[in-house]
Amino acid sequence: MSSDSLLLLITLVVIAAAMLRHRDRKSEVDCIPEIEVAVRKAAELNRPAYFIPGSRDIDNIQTISALSMLKVVARYCAEYDVELIIPVSKSMVMERAREVCNAAYEEAGFSDRWSSSQVSYTTDDPLGFVAHVDGMIARAKPAVCFMFGFFAGESLLLAESSYNVAEVTIAGTAVPSQIPFFVASCDTTLIGEEFFAASAMLSGNQEDIAMLQGLDAGKQLAIGIILAVVVLSYLTLIFKPEMYESFLTIVDNLLHGGGR
């Protein structure tokens, strides 16, 4: 087993152990209030809410997390009687989104407020999808737009169209290159792992909170490794400067299998 595979294995074991250890522990996690506030605003204005679960298929982990967020948003929309519209660009996501919303409306006790036609599929083509959604947003003038999941070049096109008509825009993505666009255009942006954490926090399930503990354990491991390498490299530079290059080569081999 190469050293980079070993590091991946250690990370997997640490996160899994932390998740299993905390799965039964009771803990309180505050919900993110902006989402409920935004849906309430839509109810006050009597305008619909839009939820866009990214532009990738169901095999993308961000789409799965976006659908977890959708369940929470759908529950709020059911409670506050806000029309929820979900345009999707993948047919498998369409089917899953319908199931998620159906379950959320039933759980809220307002299944009569839900119709599967509220989830609409247009095209797999990202730009065709953007054109369709931008047109829908311009005509329907929603009060709130949620954009969660994987977005590529379409992020700014969707975010700016939403900003122009919606009272509140909330986005979340784990694509580093698209984060600045959402930060610039949206009222609230969930950055990187915040997006995964938020979907777990909002669900309120103990298992999802255990996932957060696993995520924290992984971050502690990463911080520990970074700090150890930095301290060791400085110590080597101060006390054994002739070994500094060899030390860097060893670290590079350990972390990247020498393949960088």
């Binding site: 997997l12 899994a16 982990i61 997390s65 580093p176 996932m211 992984g218």
Partner: peptide
């Protein structure tokens, strides 16, 4: 952090901790 988040979400489903 995104990579760690992806691992955590994937493990949640692999370990059967969520059946959403």
């Amino acid at each position: 952090t995104v990579s760690l988040g992806v691992i955590a979400v994937a493990l949640k489903y692999i370990l059967g901790m969520s059946r959403d």
